[in-house]
């Protein structure tokens, strides 16, 4: 599994990629329709938070729900400007 020591050996971009590869299937299980964008959003968080989410399904779920709300608000804002 993914440990902070493994991550620290990788470049910042690779770290996000490694975390994303692990988060994506979990996000997909919670919210299949927007999982690509949700994972993208989550990857903007600190790596330590992402590691915590990988270990705690409850925090992952609440972050995904939060991300969905932010995404929907963002999309609503986008379309109202058009």
């Amino acid at each position: 599994d993914l440990k902070a020591t493994v991550l620290s050996a990788a470049s910042p971009g690779e770290q996000k990629e490694m975390l994303g590869e692990r988060l994506f299937p979990l996000v997909q299980a919670i919210q299949p329709t927007m999982s690509n964008k949700i994972t993208g959003m989550l990857l903007e968080l600190e790596n330590s938070e992402l590691l915590h989410m990988l270990e705690s399904p409850e925090s992952l779920r609440s972050m995904v729900e939060e991300a969905v709300e932010v995404l929907q608000a963002h999309q609503a804002m986008d379309t109202s400007y058009k």
């Binding site: 971009g13 996000k16 994303g20 994506f24 299937p25 690509n36 964008k37 903007e44 986008d78």
Partner: peptide, 26 residues
């Protein structure tokens, strides 16, 4: 700024390089 709000958030695609994180390590 605010010119790229439409492109946010970047999409993560498994198996592809992650491009959403800006220019730390080009």
């Amino acid at each position: 700024n605010g010119s790229s709000s439409v492109n946010w958030p970047p999409e993560f695609r498994p198996g592809e390089p992650w491009k959403g994180y800006p220019n730390i390590d080009p």
